[in-house]
Simulated assay, not measured.
Amino acid sequence: MRVWRGAVYLLGSLATGIATLLALPLLCFPRLARPWAEWHRDRAGWLLGKPLAVRPALPATERGAWADAATPRDLLWLPVHAVTGVVLGLPALLCVGNVVVAAIATPLWWAFALEDRPRLFIDIPVTGWATALTLGPLQILLLAALAYLAFPPIARAHARICLAVLSHSAAEALADRVAVLTRTRADVLDAHGAELRRIERDLHDGTQARLVAIAMRLAVARQALSDDPRDEQFLAGLLRDAHEGTEEAMTELRDVIRTVYPPILADRGLAGALTAVTTRCGVPTRLDVGDLDRVPAAMEAVVYFAVAEALTNVARHSHATAAGVRVSRTADRLSVGITDNGSGGADHRLGTGIAGIRRRVLALDGTVDVDSPAGGPTTITLELPCGW
């Protein structure tokens, strides 16, 4: 398998190296060089078994595209690939071509004209069955051994050259990381401010208003009790309204508290809280929670709210008949997968709650991946670091 992967990679590199050489004047523009370079990065990652993060898109303006930090690397890759693709791919072509000649043309030597009969790689003409049946298989065996030994390391060498040219330097990677953290911190601050405003509004317009009404009813009841103690029916009605208002205010207050930090997490832990969420979901949901060990409280809250929001979306928008939640931990990474068999098409730009999930997860230096093609199914994968 490694030999075939190496052969396909090297032959592809030869073809694209020649194409790069021929189209070099056209490719020397950032908007053409970037997708060409990205495609080669993907090929290199496929060969090395190393999934690569997608680089940021080019700025919208032409000036911004030329000023992008990755543009010089994209342009440098063009001549580098034109040289390395041809130099490293040509031996693979010669090797494969000679194998084909030995395997196909040599047994049919008698069908060729005398001057067109095939020659083996050591320039021995095939003039009889003895040569065809002995030196032909010997050539295939030698070339197969050469391919087995040489193709994988040569292909990996080209792939590493590709990644070395197109990958960020340590300073650029650090700068990108700082930019991401700065952006996510700004998002967190905005989300935190919005959450505080929402809590203040809920308390001011809801709970506080009800408590004021209760206080007024109790004041009237007290006045009625002092002025006319015989009016028991009027007093009972005021006290009943005050009691009902108190219950409603307490319910609203519990709802507000639950949005700050769900009490169920403190009472039952993450597994118990997720069990409650999946049980309440309007769509039958299967829950699979592995051995999580100790998870930081902030991480538990993010997972809880993310799963709750995702399942709410499933029940409201997906038309799904089944859903699943899987939570597992590997070393210092916490993985959460939410799936459903609904109609798909989930997009954070449509205000379906995925944007809120993304902000919460990015705030803890995590990642969110949404796979939701039209027609479904939908899979939301969260990865969170829990080693701190």
Results as ranks from 00 to 15, higher is better:
G12Q: 12
L146K: 02
G290R: 10
A155R: 08
G366F: 03
F121G: 01
L203Q: 08
V336K: 02
L114M: 05
L287H: 04
L90D: 01
H40N: 14
R183D: 14
H348G: 00
V96W: 06
A164G: 13
L174N: 10
D123P: 00
G89P: 06
P263E: 02
E172G: 06
T312V: 05
T279N: 07
T131M: 09
L88W: 08
L350P: 00
H317S: 07
L24P: 03
G6R: 11
A209F: 01
D347I: 06
G17C: 04
I122S: 09
T84F: 14
H168V: 01
G136Q: 07
L120V: 07
R177H: 12
I161C: 11
L235N: 12
Q208V: 05
E195T: 13
L239M: 15
A19D: 06
T339E: 09
L174H: 12
R34A: 15
S318V: 00
L93C: 11
T131W: 08
A92E: 02
A346Q: 04
P30N: 08
H348Q: 13
R41Q: 09
Y261P: 00
T259N: 01
A310Y: 00
A306Y: 05
A171V: 03
A271N: 04
K50R: 15
L135Y: 07
R183N: 12
R333L: 14
V86N: 03
V220R: 15
L52Y: 00
I357K: 02
R43Y: 04
G237K: 06
A145T: 08
E200K: 05
G245I: 09
F305A: 09
T134H: 02
L138V: 14
D231L: 12
S169I: 06
W4C: 02
T84Y: 11
Y261M: 03
V260W: 00
T378C: 09
D123H: 06
D369Y: 00
G128F: 06
A69H: 13
C281G: 04
E300R: 04
D176L: 13
G353N: 10
L350F: 07
E172N: 04
W46N: 13
A130K: 07
A175Q: 11
A103E: 11
P296R: 08
E383L: 15
S167C: 11
G64N: 07
T275D: 13
